[in-house]
Design a protein around this nucleic acid. Structure first.
Ligand SMILES: [Mn+2]
Ligand SMILES: [Mn+2]
Ligand SMILES: [Mn+2]
Ligand SMILES: [Mn+2]
Lengths: 219, 219
DNA sequence: TTTTAAGTTTAAGCTTGCTTAACTTTGCAT
DNA sequence: ATGCAAAGTTAAGCAAGCTTAAACTTAAAA
């Protein structure tokens, strides 16, 4: 497995996971920042190796073998993220960028030691589940979308799903991260933006930002 | 900088450091496990970039710019080694192999955090000096070669220089590692092998093994 | 049913880092 | 001084992972 195939399998898994529809080559190309010609190329190669189910001009899917590999890479990524955050106190954005590279270069043995060091953790610093060595995924509690939250009640940020690097900074600046407690001050139904109280501070979030946040009720 | 150039510059620096004579292409080829044609190729490319002083059919040398880069990579390597040993309790052999890859893939920022976490350490787990961010090298105490050690006196292992993977295991099995105290039991002048007491155990070392060990007198 | 736009594939080509095989140069031993 | 072995270089070629441009397929609109 090379870096390029690691990243391809991972992107295919994550895209599939994020949406209802089948994954199209253009999406993969956009996510991986390569041309769609390169995507076709890689798809053919991985199909030959039995990792991707692929028919020309049709959407593509991971085979069970491909999914198994994808989960291994995601496990590495998320273990690195948590390790770097816990041990070296790196912020969410750095941690992701660093893990994007380190995921390809640590031995199995090293990853297992990191796993043990962290006490076989279930979630990474974004609140995303860390696949286990067996390939199974820890069950997340049923999380509440921030949209569904009731004004006045207090919640705990459980998970933040961000793709855009700028947004990491934004949330960091406003203190929004997994584990943080917050309250809804008001919902603006006309454009679905919300006003929150995070710590002592009031924050206004657009719909796009609101959709990135998932909560657990605080007992 | 790519992995191949990183490794080339590092190997050139270390070979130069290990021996009196100038570095020959064959040595570099052997160390990097590539053909000498590939060495010539890389030498030309790095000469163009001002990192290596190179004239065809003559030995090659790092330029000051090349040396600066080499030291940066060595710094990364040794910081990773110490980090993996201290934090994840990996053994000397694993630590080296892991560092051989990780040295190319961590950001400056991550390396600095590791440096701070370790308290700006001066030596790696082999006893080799860790180049500072400035590029300077911590001065090692004047170490004693094991050959020069006097029977009866007690010493501290300060530094172990190993290239051969099997030897890591051998030394590990006999408990020989930096920080370990030992005594010379007897020197066999006829073939320069030595008998040591390491911990409670007696060990016989051939000349080749003896030459890998450097000591500090114990007060 | 034809047209069109979006998406995909093919073809040709580039770069890096390597290979082997044939050669040239160097310097040492005779 | 000559000849030879060791070291180094050149040439041709390969694989991976990309690129752009042109050709093609699909599905949906007109
Ligand atoms: Mn991530
Ligand atoms: Mn990656
Ligand atoms: Mn090392
Ligand atoms: Mn390396």
């Amino acid at each position: 497995m090379s870096i390029a195939t690691d990243n391809f399998l991972k992107a295919l898994y994550l895209l599939r996971d994020e949406q209802v529809e089948a994954v199209m080559g253009t999406q993969l190309a956009a996510r991986l920042e390569i041309s769609s010609a390169a995507v076709t190329d890689m798809a053919r190669k991985l199909a030959e190796r039995g990792l991707v189910a692929y028919t020309p001009y049709r959407e593509m899917e991971l085979t069970p073998a491909g999914e198994e590999l994808a989960l291994k890479i995601i496990r590495r990524h998320r273990l690195w993220e948590l390790f770097l955050q816990q041990v070296l106190d790196m912020d969410l954005k750095m941690v992701h960028e660093e893990a994007e590279r380190l995921e390809h270069h640590a031995s199995e043995e090293l990853m297992n030691r990191i796993d043990v060091f962290l006490g076989h953790p279930d979630f990474d610093p974004h609140g995303e589940p860390i696949p286990r060595q067996s390939g199974s995924l820890p069950e997340a509690d049923d999380l509440l979308e921030l949209q569904q939250a009731e004004p006045g009640k207090t919640y705990l940020v459980a998970r933040i799903i961000i793709r855009e690097p700028e947004v990491f900074d934004l949330f960091a600046r406003y203190g929004i991260h997994p584990g943080q407690r917050l309250q809804v001050v008001q919902c603006y139904d006309f454009d679905k933006s919300m006003e929150l109280e995070v710590g002592r501070r009031k924050v206004l979030l657009s719909e796009g930002l609101v959709q990135k946040i998932f909560l657990n009720p605080l007992n």
